[in-house]
Design a protein around this nucleic acid. Structure first.
Lengths: 357, 357
DNA sequence: TTATTGTGTGAGACCGGTCTCTTTAGTAAT
DNA sequence: ATTACTAAAGAGACCGGTCTCACACAATAA
């Protein structure tokens, strides 16, 4: 009679083989589900495995096959609902295809992103999905590609990198949202975004493609509407709730505060909303507000907030599907998917307040 | 002259050893950072590694050392801000200690939870953090423990399982929140929670410890306040935004609708808030509302919502720290941490409306 | 009957690291 | 000069799987 397995020591194919009185190779064939084995022996091996409570060591398996069954995902900030939802899309797609996901947070810091990528490659993930935090330094992404592992980009494109990419229509979305504000009569429209930086000077200073596209769209529509120097109302640095609050506060404290604001994500919008309230102003009457991302809360505020509704779950799912197809051997030239958005008009946009101008 | 590495073929210690003209063992000592090597040889090996762009294969390393440097995390729903934040706490603690996190979603389904655990064990994670979706079937959790890998429980305890556990003070929190409502004069108080199930009958029917504790606290205070049959207002099944909306709608449509509601998480609270509005009712004046989890949006609604503020980030960080200490060899009897909560009183609680009673 | 083909099983190399054990060389002590 | 000891490097087993190849044996074809 045998007692339970001596704790940390796990059961291997050899153990099963010995118990079933067959060779290691044969046991491995049964347990690994490959090759050809007679039904009788198969039954014996499975019985032995059952009794011993055999569990395959995926690590060892991965080492010989070269495949780990893991997809590495590097996102900017998992706390941001935008990313949580996208990750959910990725996870679902991955699981459906038999892959696991290992998640890393870059905090939008390029150094942390590089470290994460290095570690994931070390872990021999089969492929990677990254939201590159900037476009200047992408050597680590080239490395992935060079190492033969497929890479796919989420939410942000890199023109220099020929890999599968899924983004939303950033430029178009920003344009439509800005046009709504301009059509409502606004001439002092601000755009608040999360990217690192102090003062906005120039598009060339922005190294995150989605941010650049949005600012570009915003400025284009502003200029079309005859607004002068719209760039004076572009605000960077809203990289966290606290920072976003600071930026909003500064924006709204000056004598020439804007009459409308476009926010680049729901976390920022929430802080702007809060500051507007704190200053005794009213959304829509005093300040119009539109934000990217149809976060759940945007529909229950007073007034509810007009949003750019992005297909976030689909974004994650699409990029994962693209990657998985490639992992399954599909070879084709890199695809660049741009998902359309819709604008949900609610009650946060009104005509500009005059404040005695 | 050598061309760049033939794609999928990566550089190994042997390659480096050959290039540096030393034995594989010596190169491994340098590259693995163990054993003792002379400075001259070390420099040679590092130089060769640099030139060849050597990257260690963590898989192979893990196989011999038996340690993967990965912590497996299984949560109910990563989309829920509660879990996102807790996972953030875990990730930060893990990274600080040199561990990586591999994340799996159970969707609160026990079968998916079991699958996730099985896969993670197969991947030879060093330890696991799980939010058990129910207490009836915990054989897979016992297995983890038996396999010698440390396990820690997050947010939900299992009395039968002697493992490190970090929860919040569920019973006490529910009691204090309920008391606020009772003290305001409410006699018809509802508790809406996410657990699977149709009608509430009995505490024994609830298999999630946190949910049970909260309901227990809620009922206790209700009874202390002389409320009869408080259990008639306990509502289960708010397992998704859509379901939560359905539950809330039903709760508020009857003739004897409650005058106050306690919600078990912010996702549910949001849907309740939405339904209250839709029905033309006012929060605080017509229906009082308190919710677990100080979600960001709860402070910007009109009125802002009174919440039970849970130290969610700390919850994740603590459980990860506990697990990591054990991974580093600490042996001690299992610890059960119960983190305190505070109630942030805002504007969503008022006296009960009389509606002609 | 002998050659041919095919099926099922066993033996052992291999993946890329770690780690133990042995060998070598250099220094100090007697 | 001989012995004793220590530091540094090498040889090779090992982790737990996969996979190639060799081989035994049965069935079929010549």
């Amino acid at each position: 009679m045998k007692k339970t397995a001596p704790k940390t020591q796990s059961i291997t194919v050899s153990d099963v083989a010995r118990a079933a009185k067959v060779s290691k190779a044969t046991a491995a064939r049964v347990l690994g589900g490959y090759g050809v084995v007679s039904d009788m022996i198969r039954a014996d091996v499975l019985a032995a495995a059952k009794i011993l409570d055999y569990r395959p060591n995926e690590l060892a398996r991965s080492m010989t096959t070269g495949r780990s069954g893991i997809i590495g995902v590097v996102v900017g900030d998992i706390e941001n609902p935008f990313f949580s939802l996208a990750v959910r899309g990725i996870s679902d797609a991955a699981r459906a295809a038999g892959f696991n996901v290992i998640l890393a947070n870059s905090g939008e810091r390029i150094e942390d992103e590089k470290t994460a990528v290095r570690i994931l490659i070390g872990k021999r993930v089969d492929g990677l999905i990254v939201t590159p935090s900037e476009s200047r330094d992408i050597s680590h992404l080239r490395d992935i590609h060079r190492s033969g592992r497929p890479l796919a980009l989420l939410d942000r494109g890199l023109p220099d990198l020929g890999v599968d990419t899924v983004t939303i229509d950033d430029r178009g979305s920003a344009m439509r949202a800005t046009r709504i504000l301009a059509d409502a009569g606004h001439r002092n429209i601000a755009y608040v975004t999360a990217v690192e930086g102090h003062e906005y000077r120039d598009l060339a200073q922005i190294y995150t493609s989605s941010v650049r596209e949005r600012i570009d769209g915003f400025l284009t529509v502003c200029r079309d509407a005859g607004i002068e120097r719209p760039e004076r109302y572009v605000r960077l640095g809203a990289t966290s709730p606290v920072e976003a609050g600071r930026v909003a506060d500064k924006l709204l404290s000056g004598p020439d505060r804007p009459t409308a604001i476009l926010a680049s994500d729901s976390v920022i919008a929430l802080e702007i909303f809060r500051v507007i309230r704190q200053r005794g102003l009213r959304v829509s009457e005093d300040i119009s507000l539109i934000t990217f991302h149809n976060a759940d809360w945007t529909s229950v505020t007073t007034p509810p907030i007009t949003v750019i509704d992005q297909p976030v779950y689909a974004l994650g799912k699409s990029v994962a599907d693209l990657l998985i197809r490639r992992l399954k051997g599909e070879t084709r030239s890199p695809e660049r998917l741009i998902l359309p958005t819709t604008i949900i008009e609610r009650g946060s946009v009104g005509p500009p307040s005059n404040r005695g101008r």
